[in-house]
Design a protein around this nucleic acid. Structure first.
Lengths: 192, 192
DNA sequence: CGATTCTTTGAAAACAGTCAATCTGTGTGG
DNA sequence: CCACACAGATTGACTGTTTTCAAAGAATCG
């Protein structure tokens, strides 16, 4: 529901009734069944998407048909393909629902408009972007520095919620290893 | 020189003489000799840093003493530790000069002030942040999807300048492999 | 030059990937 | 409610890639 999004906003910035009433119609709620695409490779992404329910993933598919998970998103997270959004070019990635989900979509033009009208919104979004960048720097650091086992330990530590919710094969993909390797890493770790 | 920075700004946004005159004293020029630290692990990073000359790297050191390069920066690039900047916590990373270099430092408070006074500046910075995020998403994708050889090919394609300028061992580190592996990958590729 | 650092090469070991079979749990239709 | 089918996870044996360790060969700098 869009209420989830408004609630999220009100927790972070103060908005008048008039403002929330103005924002609300700029939002579209999209329900997705498990495995349904939100974005498919080749499409142009023109939204900012807020996950109000469920769990999604962004992934790329290589020439061998293997999927590589770039990111996960659950309730109160944002998801999308910023590359396609910025460039206007077709996306190289796919986004689909891991569970039955709901996302609040705001078209880029409307999103920018909200930012122009409400400086606090703009600042909030900027803060999210900065944090996202830090998170992705840390993921790069983990990807180039850690062994398979360390990557998994770090993942569980960082995202205990996902470790439950997301199929192991997708976690393996997220960490850049095969499902078999992750399975072995886990049984190793369990022995301790 | 700070002029390099002003020139960079004027290429991207329009500023009056008064504005550049106002910005200028908020900038500090720091000269770095090869191998000199700009930021050392444990320090708190409070700047935005613009590289006006030379080449630097950000890297972390693991428990075995191995260095892992998070990023490079050359002329007209920005560098810093956003995690430390945002959190105010000591940095986990080091930044040092790969060549004799010059960076323009702007303290966080002054940087924010410029953004407040000059909306175009704020938008420029936001655009850079967005692009940086896209670049780091792509790097994650490469790190989890590609083989050693593909990682190197992709790197050369993406940053032909660095491939010349930066020692191979640092490129290897940046790509998450040992210098020996990179050396072998290169001699393989050369055979084609 | 001589010394230091970086790169290359080789051989062995460790690690992760592949392929195939089995096991487990879930959900569906009879 | 059971039986079956299906997807996901595990395990084993094998292959291939990357790392490690060690040494030799370039390149660079004072």
């Amino acid at each position: 529901m869009v209420d989830v999004f408004i609630h999220y906003l009100l927790q972070r910035i103060s908005l008048s009734e008039a403002e929330t009433a103005w924002i609300r119609p700029l939002c579209t709620l999209k329900k997705l069944r498990k495995k349904q695409y939100l974005l498919q490779e080749g499409d142009v992404w023109i939204y900012n998407a807020f996950v109000s329910k469920g769990c999604l993933r962004t992934y790329g598919v290589d020439d061998k048909g293997l999927e590589h998970v770039i990111s996960f998103a659950v309730e109160n997270w944002w998801i999308g393909d910023r590359e396609s959004l910025l460039s206007g070019q077709p996306s190289r990635f796919n986004i689909d629902a891991i569970e039955d989900s709901e996302v609040v979509l705001i078209r880029k033009d409307n999103f920018d408009l909200i930012g122009q009208q409400i400086p606090a919104f703009r600042e909030m979004v900027n803060g999210i972007l900065q944090k996202s960048f830090v998170v992705s720097q840390n993921r790069i650091h983990a990807a180039i520095s850690y062994s398979a086992e360390e990557k998994y330990q770090n993942f569980v530590h960082q995202y205990p919620a996902f470790a439950q919710r997301v199929p192991q094969s997708m976690i393996a993909s997220f960490l850049g290893m095969t499902p078999e390797t992750l399975s072995r890493v886990r049984s190793q770790s369990a022995k301790k």
